[in-house]
């Protein structure tokens, strides 16, 4: 599992929850909020990505994440563990 794969999974979850976003708009440095995701969309994207990667992370551990890069890092860490 590469970090790039994790990023791809997150991208596919984003476009599923927010169909008006295209994958090439999603750069790793932005936050989900920057892409127009509301609080519930953000949770949906995270849960969907976790499901696709087969990882289970207590949501409190995601509190410090503030952009997609942070999300990639924590999901990558759990997926590789």
């Amino acid at each position: 599992m590469l970090k790039e794969n994790v990023f791809q999974v997150i991208k596919s979850s984003i476009v599923e929850i927010l169909p008006e976003i295209s994958t090439n708009q999603i750069v790793i440095s932005v936050s989900l909020q920057d892409l127009g995701a509301n609080s519930i969309d953000r949770m949906d994207i995270i849960i969907k990505s976790m499901e696709r990667l087969g990882v289970k992370i207590p949501l409190v551990e995601l509190a410090k994440v503030n952009n997609i890069q942070g999300l990639v890092d924590i999901l990558y860490e759990k997926a590789s563990a």
């Binding site: 519930i40 949770m43 849960i47 969907k48 499901e51 289970k56």
Partner: peptide, 12 residues
């Protein structure tokens, strides 16, 4: 199977 993956929008 996996309660952890329940969509958060369920609560709404």
């Amino acid at each position: 199977q996996t309660p952890e993956y329940l969509s958060p929008t369920y609560a709404l």
